[in-house]
Design a binder for these strands. Structure first.
Lengths: 367, 367
DNA sequence: TTGCCGGCTGAATCTTACC
DNA sequence: CGGTAAGATTCAGCCGGCA
């Protein structure tokens, strides 16, 4: 893995066509791709534009495609190139609005990507609909996809997201302001450098949720480098691809100023799944429970006998704490650690406490 | 216009294939179409809740398709039939989830529909993600489209929508509960009649926004008739198409009981506003505090490290501002917002001030 | 009558480590 | 690689039972 990383142009902005540049990179080499492709706003010429007010509309030449067909071809090409360089354990995010996201989503599904969630970025401060002819277009959509449907190991920092949402699991609708104020890059004359600069908070949430420290994040439409800024701040590597030298230059200068957070503040709330596995037998071996003792369900109604080999017995049934727990309840499955309790000063205490205790002891020795 | 209306099967539920039924209706004869087509969910095995009960999944035969290609063909067929019967001044709504909405959106654009807005229905009470492997899938998407791009006269009751949103322009994200409680149709045994009954409030908003009194609203996937119930209540005509006689029967009985409104009592259906809940993580994401900073108790004796995921760490303890606050004090609970302070010009200031600040910025946008 | 508590449920593409 | 067993995992709202 290190050798692969060493051949990658880490923490750099490469100028050129993103498809050619991606094709020049080794296959299966990046952990995450974040893409903010052109939005195809000018479909069919000026008459058909969905919003023909003159509010600094997006009319740069890179945003022009003469038909849905061309846009679909373009999407298929860059999404295929992206898929090649993605690790088999990797994932991709694509952001868009109703002008392009339905095209993009269909192409992604067609070439084998598997949708994990679609996420709605709700803007606290969207541009109003000036004519009063439509609903205020107050959101954009992100697609989070794995490389294929069979893929199991996806990085998803569930507990960290739950923390961020004050103890409730994070939903698919995110409320964040648009990029403005000091964060928005301006040139000497105070004109914005890029028409669609994304807020860094959005990228931070994406990277916090679906990458780990040291991961490689590639952005094929780098623009002024919000992905790079967020990656650097969070201790991830980035690779930025951008066709326009002016944007690339602005991005490099911007990212150089970013203060990287230190390791402690990047520590994520850990999931139980990442903790070392403790067999119930270890609890017996260490003498936290003795063979011959009884363990009970949470009300003390059901009692099972603890045996020396770490199995337990209840009436005819014998086996692991999980198997017997399931059988006793007539349930298809059971987490024995939370189902069973032992008596301590007359009160029932979860055996999961014994596991925690053991983990603490082991941590000081091995880890 | 009256002659045309007289040939239409107004305020009826027709049983049969929706494409054939639509083809039997006169062209350019309906004002609005609302469609809730099959979502083409692709479920694996059973899903168990943490308490080992089984989730009652949508596994009905009508939701099964062999492939995306078959689903696309199906979509193209019914959307073309719908387009023929739509008046040139008419519009269409289609609702879906990430499983199908990207397919539907692409087909709609391909056959000439023009997207006016995409609308996000944010559920106040979605089903959680039981396994902790994804973001909670808390929304569905609606596409609002005109028959073609050139179409000028679209019914959009801008002022009514603005009223409904307390004087502010209605946004593209709508917060509404799912259909449950007394509104949910149940059979004798208390089993739900239809697996995916939509809330009437959603349909009311759609019809309030994009139809006038006396308009004809057609629903090709009528199910248990939420569109019909909302139409009748609001003084619009409906035409319901439904393949299953059982659903059609339930719909007829339901609609017959609906009281038609003559006044302006609709506002009652709109949810009340309460103070938006602000997770501590939002304070970090928005940059009001930076990861790596320290927060203190009111005397500055206890210091905790702020981490990027919105958790804080103090000695061995890590968790939410509330959890760590409680642990530090040896208390069973703690309001972290009032316990913790940050340093500002050498003085200690409550982090609750940051929450107030954020609430002010959010203003009328319900979090 | 009111309030509290436990149980049930909703369009869901929902596991992973070890042998 | 496949098979097997361990074991991690939920939020809001409605309803009924009971104090």
């Amino acid at each position: 893995m290190m050798t692969k990383k060493q051949t990658l142009p880490l923490d750099q902005v490469l100028v050129g066509d993103c498809i050619e540049l991606m094709n020049s990179l080794p296959e299966k080499s990046v952990d995450l791709i974040f893409a903010d492709p052109p939005y195809n706003l000018q479909l069919g010429g000026d008459l058909l534009r969905p919003n023909n007010t003159k509010v600094d509309a997006v009319d740069d030449h890179w945003d022009q495609f003469d038909s849905f067909r061309h846009y679909d071809e373009f999407s298929r090409d860059w999404l295929n190139a992206a898929r090649r360089i993605l690790k088999d354990t990797g994932a991709i995010w694509v952001i868009g609005s109703y002008h392009n996201i339905y095209r993009v989503g269909t192409v992604m599904q067609d070439i084998g990507y598997w949708v994990l969630n679609d996420i709605v970025w709700r803007k606290t401060n969207p541009m109003p609909n000036f004519r009063g002819k439509r609903f205020c277009n107050a959101h954009e959509t992100l697609l989070w996809c794995s490389k294929n449907a069979e893929q199991k190991a996806i990085t998803f920092n569930y507990e960290a997201m739950k923390q961020l949402n004050e103890g409730l699991q994070m939903r698919s609708d995110w409320l964040l302001p648009i990029c403005s104020g000091g964060e928005r890059l301006k040139d000497d004359k105070g004109k914005k450098v890029h028409p669609t600069q994304k807020p860094e908070a959005l990228l931070q949430r994406v990277l916090m949720a679906t990458t780990r420290q040291g991961d490689v994040v590639l952005d094929p439409f780098f623009g002024t480098g919000t992905t790079g800024a967020a990656a650097r701040r969070l201790g991830r590597h980035f690779i930025g691809l951008e066709r326009e030298e002016d944007y690339a230059k602005a991005a490099r200068e911007r990212i150089a100023k970013v203060q990287m957070l230190d390791g402690d503040s990047l520590e994520l709330t850990e999931s139980k799944r990442s903790l070392p596995r403790i067999p119930f037998g270890a609890v017996i071996e260490r003498g936290l429970l003795a063979p011959g003792e009884k363990i009970y369900d949470n009300r003390g109604n059901v009692a099972a006998l603890v045996r020396a080999d770490g199995s337990i017995a209840h009436k005819d049934a014998a086996g692991s704490i999980h198997q017997v727990g399931a059988q006793v309840q007539g349930a298809p499955a059971c987490n024995g650690w939370t189902y069973w309790h032992y008596k301590c000063d007359g009160r029932l205490v979860s055996i999961d406490n014994l596991r925690s205790q053991l983990r603490k002891e082991l941590g000081q020795v091995s880890a």
